[in-house]
Computed example of a mutant assay.
Amino acid sequence: MEDTVRAFEEGNAEAIAFVGETLGPLFLQDPKTGDAGAALQALADLEVVAAAAEWPFAEEAEVLSDLGLMKEGLAPGIDNEDLVWEYRRLFIGPGPKPMPPWGSVYLDRECVVFGTSTLALRAWMREQGIERLADDKTPEDHLGLMLVLMAWIARNRPEVLDDYLRLHLLTWSEHFLDGLAKAAQHPFYEGLARLTNASLEGIRRDRALEVVYPRFYR
């Protein structure tokens, strides 16, 4: 019985890691200058119906729609200027970003980067002995970094995964991703936001997590 439970937990953790590793870099990497070219090409070549049937946690119909949007957005090419400029409009600037990808922008009263929620995540990581997975120039609560960290924790520190999700990621991810889906002017990023949101909500349900949602200041 214990072996069965352990195998189930390992399979669940692997599925969570898959979600984080697949989606996280797409929020972090510029399609033209970043390292996501192989991932973008794989999505462009994807058999959407087959992939939707295998995608974990989210409902198949939702995944089918979201992956369809992403593939539609990649049809002109993975380095198409519309895709590149939409990424930069959403996540880089220099103009005002419609939905900045950092949690503290929504959770901190001052709506600032490196706010109190960022410091709380940093302190939690330090308490758990978890090191940053990237350089120290990007706040730890960037949605892309947090998805990649979710994958790392699922594989390496599964005993603290629920606390990470409940206290740090799921508190703001739905708010951000809902807004991002509405703000996106390109099907790839609308689909990415929707698929990420559906996947994280599915993980929350699967793990029966009770999340206390804070006040959002933006």
Rank of each mutant, 00 (worst) to 15 (best):
I16R: 13
A183H: 11
A154C: 12
F216L: 12
E81M: 07
L143D: 04
W172Y: 08
E174G: 05
A198E: 11
E10T: 08
A15S: 12
S65W: 05
W55L: 07
A39E: 08
A123N: 07
S199I: 02
L69D: 02
V5H: 02
V84A: 07
R157N: 13
A134V: 11
F176E: 02
L143S: 06
F18R: 02
A120W: 10
A208D: 09
I130Q: 05
E21H: 02
L169E: 08
F114W: 12
L90I: 05
L170R: 04
T33P: 00
G129C: 03
W102T: 13
L121K: 02
E2Q: 12
A154G: 15
P100S: 06
G93T: 03
L200V: 04
L23W: 00
F188T: 02
D82T: 07
R218T: 13
P56D: 04
E81T: 12
D45N: 10
V148F: 11
R122Y: 01
Y217K: 14
E174Q: 09
A42W: 06
L149D: 10
T118F: 09
W55F: 12
P214V: 12
R204E: 15
L165K: 08
A75R: 13
E131R: 11
R89C: 04
R126H: 07
V19A: 11
A44D: 02
L69V: 10
F188K: 05
S117F: 08
L133P: 09
A15P: 03
L167G: 15
F188H: 06
L195Y: 10
L169D: 08
D135M: 01
P94Q: 05
L74I: 13
E190R: 09
V63C: 12
N12V: 04
L143Q: 10
P98R: 04
D141M: 12
E60H: 15
D66I: 03
S173R: 09
V63K: 13
V63H: 01
V148H: 09
D79Y: 00
D79S: 12
P31Y: 06
E59N: 11
A17E: 03
A151G: 09
G95A: 11
L43F: 07
V212L: 14
M125K: 03
W172D: 01
G95V: 08
R194L: 13
A51V: 02
F91L: 10
R155Y: 05
A36C: 12
D3H: 08
P25D: 00
M70P: 15
V63Y: 01
L121S: 03
A44F: 07
A51S: 06
